[in-house]
């Protein structure tokens, strides 16, 4: 098979020199230094895997700029978050709590179904979900396809123990924190090599 054919099918992509991505297909992360490393922002209709060990490293503050853009007619879906999102902290960050739809399921099967429905619907610009270690690659591939169908961003938070597993998600990030603040390593991204950990300037806690 010729290289051109592979590229047409999207199985092979060019590195950073390819500037073929339209600006409107990108969603800014709201952090200029992260946008620069992503090549302008998140590519819409993709799955993003965010790996971290334990909550409290800045995963919500990373999303604030995206959450602020949510409107009632295009709500954000939170599927099975590990804790209760705090409405008051959202209001303080100028995010409307009523545009955040909280979804609770009873089993992994239902959770995957709900994520897929939300991604596929095309009415949710951002779908946040939490998955553990026991998710299979075909299940993730389904979600990546659903995100492509719907055109929204699908964010999956997973423990960093799955770092060595391969994943069909378009982006893979590792979020870490230290005294100096939060750091993000890009384990996988569209149109480029993985990038080592670098600081992101998240809003301070206090």
């Amino acid at each position: 098979m010729a290289l051109v054919q592979l590229m047409e099918q999207g199985q092979l992509w060019r590195g950073a020199q390819d500037a073929g991505i339209q600006a409107e297909a990108l969603e800014s992360s709201g952090y200029p230094e992260l946008d620069a490393r992503l090549g302008g922002g998140w590519l819409k209709g993709q799955l993003i895997e965010l790996l971290q060990s334990g909550e409290g490293r800045g995963e919500l503050r990373l999303l604030w700029p995206l959450l602020r853009r949510a409107a009632p007619e295009r709500p954000v879906f939170w599927i099975d978050p590990p804790h209760q999102p705090c409405a008051l902290s959202f209001l303080q960050a100028d995010i409307r709590p009523e545009t955040q739809q909280l979804v609770r399921t009873h089993s992994l099967k239902e959770r995957l179904w709900a994520i897929e429905q939300a991604l596929k619907s095309g009415c949710a610009p951002l779908v946040l979900s939490w998955l553990g270690e026991q998710v299979t690659t075909p299940a993730l591939r389904r979600l990546q396809l659903a995100a492509q169908t719907g055109g929204g961003l699908g964010l999956i938070m997973r423990p960093d123990s799955v770092r060595s597993q391969s994943s069909p998600a378009a982006y893979r990030l590792h979020l870490d924190s230290s005294d100096r603040g939060a750091e993000i390593a890009l384990l996988k991204r569209r149109g480029g090599w993985p990038l080592p950990a670098a600081a992101v300037d998240l809003p301070a806690v206090i």
């Binding site: 999102p85 709590p97 979804v103 609770r104 239902e110």
Partner: peptide, 22 residues
């Protein structure tokens, strides 16, 4: 969104999808 929420509620139960409030 209303259709999506209805679909989720039909399968997961009426209380399973709720917007955040304070």
């Amino acid at each position: 969104p209303a259709e999506l929420i209805s679909r989720l509620r039909s399968r997961l139960g009426a209380e399973s999808v709720q917007p955040l409030g304070w």
